[in-house]
Design a binder for these strands. Structure first.
Lengths: 198, 198
DNA sequence: TCCTTTATTTGACTATGGTCAATATTGGTA
DNA sequence: TACCAATATTGACCATAGTCAAATAAAGGA
């Protein structure tokens, strides 16, 4: 029992993902329709749902793919500016799209186990924790908690800032984002820096 | 131009909300169907969407209603245990339901302006900020940032912990929640307490 | 090769959120 | 009261995510 997965199944999955990638590139995640995905991939509707439990899991897989590539070159920050820079980078990417924020809220935790998205987040968090550990040793980051706890906290702040930046009104989105980013910096500083201004 | 809202409109809205309240009490938010709401309320489908832009806004209104009642008696925490107690209370309520987490992620920011949910969150945040200001004066909370920034940060941590507690697997949900709560305490301590153990 | 079992695919079908042009009701005005 | 314009309601209709029993293709054993 429990024979191995057939090669054609993986191929089908790849075709579905490739189709999704194209559609997202064309018109964004929100506009993605499962019917169009299966049309492009040349499969039946049912096949899509045999491979992905629902549309959101499919989008999460695409997002994980994309983030893995974009964050592949991330290195552990070695000083405060690069720590903040890393947070900004991740924040900006997460705030790119309301759909992205919703997917992260749903799948970044244990709910996303085995989706790729969770591992992607973990890898960023780990990189962050690495940097924090080194900075703690140098006295540039406070010792109020273990590096991995601080890293998790920073990610929470980034998520929150990204959610704040999701103003659906078109009116100066840049201003909303800037405010969220400013708040993120203040909260992050309070979390990890030894003392104000220090 | 711009005549006032008619009384029957408010009555209809109230009937819709009452119907929704009953359905949520019976089977939870996830199981709520707009068709059942309008059936109970005795209105047409279109009326529902004339009053609420979509199902999620309706659920958000119900959630706001519910939270306003539950958090009505909240007072600004006067010491550390009651600060943590407040965080726990809010965390537990937010983690009650995956739907709740999703709604909060979507509507707690500027996206939820004028929904009731945003004001509800603000009122909790304000209460928290009040307490933090007093505790800062007493030296029990660090001065690394303004009280309202710290309050916002704490809420971010609570949201994140609630998201972490959303494991869809039925296997010991209590354990997952306990872990999330522990992490919340550590992160919160690092954010607002002057020094470790202090 | 043929047979059995398991993995994979299929597409018609269902469930449900959301739309909109038509209709009904109300409040104000002469 | 008669009329108009703004407001509110209606329900048939549409779009699309998701289901499932049946069909097909591959794997393994005799």
């Amino acid at each position: 029992m429990m024979r191995k997965v057939q090669a054609r199944s993986l191929a089908t999955r790849d075709r579905l993902l490739a189709a999704g990638r194209g559609l997202v590139a064309d018109a964004g995640m929100t506009a993605l329709r499962t019917d169009e995905v299966v049309l492009r991939a040349g499969t039946a509707k049912g096949t899509f749902f045999a491979h992905f439990p629902d549309r959101d899991h499919f989008l999460a897989a695409l997002l994980a793919e994309s983030l893995r590539v974009e964050f592949a070159g991330l290195v552990a920050p070695a000083d405060r500016p690069s720590l903040l820079g890393l947070l900004d980078l991740v924040f900006l990417r997460f705030a790119a799209d309301p759909e992205t924020v919703a997917l992260l809220a749903r799948f970044s935790g244990p709910a996303g186990a085995g989706l790729g998205l969770d591992r992607m987040i973990c890898s960023v968090t780990d990189r962050l924790a690495e940097g924090l550990a080194a900075l703690q040793a140098g006295g540039l980051v406070a010792n109020r908690a273990a590096p991995d706890v601080l890293a998790e906290g920073l990610m929470a702040l980034v998520f929150h800032a990204a959610a704040l930046a999701q103003c659906p009104m078109p009116g100066d989105q840049a201003a909303v984002r800037a405010r969220a980013e400013g708040l993120l910096h203040q909260m992050a500083a309070a979390l990890v820096w030894p003392q104000v201004g220090g």
